[in-house]
């Protein structure tokens, strides 16, 4: 009993890590721009594909060993994915923001950008699935009755590290303070001499870079890639971010793990087809009871 609980816990932590990493991206952008970046799930998918090409290139063309290839793939993936995110921001969102367009139009644009990413991938690479190459050999440890792989540990560790770093960045650095300031008052911030656009770009770099990292780790853990992989995970991670209280980094992290835990527990006790149903129902109930999420602060309307 304890063993199966621990086993499920580890699975939940790993599965939740992906949600948490993607949810962090949603929450960062939302916190700064109050924009739901609906393209974020697809940026995660693009990240996984970039990782695929980078890893294949490093392994076959350059003939590097697995570890060296991984060391090369991580920065390349993160940088290129961050560039995709920033490009979207520059081309699609910024002009709208400059015009002072209704927030809804930016959301629609984001939704459409996601579709474009998804389907241009499908159009260029075709519908066939891609198998991600093995970069590092899977080591399986048996501790008691619990099975842990080195990948499990790596994913959980990396996610926790990212969280700590991000938390430090947002609470301790000047950039982080500027980010929080923007989320309070977008109009006062430029008057205080903070370069609004630079901060927004940094936010997109952070968010998309993390999505790229998540894409890489996801591809290593579940080495089958397809263009629609980002959509469902993206929607769910977004919901996780909202359940945690969107705009709050702790909330995104917690929401991601909560969602991971719910899904793993459902699969452990029920037929796996019920996974989405129960996960979404739990989230709906949480949101109905606590409309602003676990960490969210209710925006009071002043009259």
């Amino acid at each position: 009993m304890l063993e199966s609980f621990l086993q499920n816990l580890i699975n939940a932590l790993q599965w939740g890590s992906f949600y948490a990493l993607i949810a962090l991206g949603y929450t960062l952008v939302y916190g700064v721009l109050t924009l739901i970046n609906f393209a974020h799930g697809d940026i995660f998918m693009v990240g996984a594909y970039i990782a695929f090409f980078a890893a294949s290139f490093a392994l076959t063309t350059l003939g590097l060993s697995g570890w060296a290839a991984l060391a090369l793939t991580i920065p390349i993936t993160m940088i290129l994915t961050a560039m995709v995110g920033v490009t979207l921001e520059r081309i699609a969102y910024r002009p709208l923001r400059r015009k002072g367009a209704n927030r809804l139009y930016v959301v629609i644009t984001a939704l459409m950008c996601g579709l474009i990413l998804e389907h241009s991938n499908l159009a260029i690479l075709g519908a066939s699935r891609k198998a991600f190459p093995t970069l590092i050999d899977l080591k399986i440890y048996h501790i008691g009755g619990v099975t842990i792989t080195n990948l499990n540990i790596a994913v959980i560790l990396v996610t926790s590290l990212v969280f700590i770093m991000l938390h430090k960045i947002v609470t301790k650095t000047r950039v982080g303070m500027a980010m929080r300031a923007i989320s309070y008052d977008k109009f006062a911030v430029p008057l205080m001499g903070i370069p609004l656009d630079n901060i927004i770009v940094i936010t997109f770099i952070l968010g998309s870079g993390l999505a790229g990292l998540a894409g890489l780790m996801f591809a290593m853990s579940y080495p089958v890639l397809e263009p629609y992989m980002g959509a469902l995970i993206g929607w769910k991670a977004f919901i996780a971010a909202v359940v945690g209280g969107i705009g709050d980094i702790r909330g995104a992290f917690l929401g991601g793990f909560l969602l991971g835990a719910v899904e793993i527990m459902v699969v452990a006790f029920f037929p796996s087809t019920l996974r989405d149903l129960i996960a979404f129902t739990v989230l709906l109930v949480i949101l109905t009871l606590r409309p602003t999420g676990l960490f969210g602060i209710a925006k009071t309307t002043k009259i």
Binding site: W235, F238, V242, L277, L284, P291
Partner: peptide, 23 residues
């Protein structure tokens, strides 16, 4: 849920509702 929530939070609820129905 729309009695209490508006905007982005309600958007999530509609997405979740869509998934719940399909699922």
């Amino acid at each position: 849920p729309s009695y209490k929530t508006r905007g982005d939070y309600l958007a999530i609820i509609t997405i979740a509702a869509n998934y719940i129905i399909i699922s």
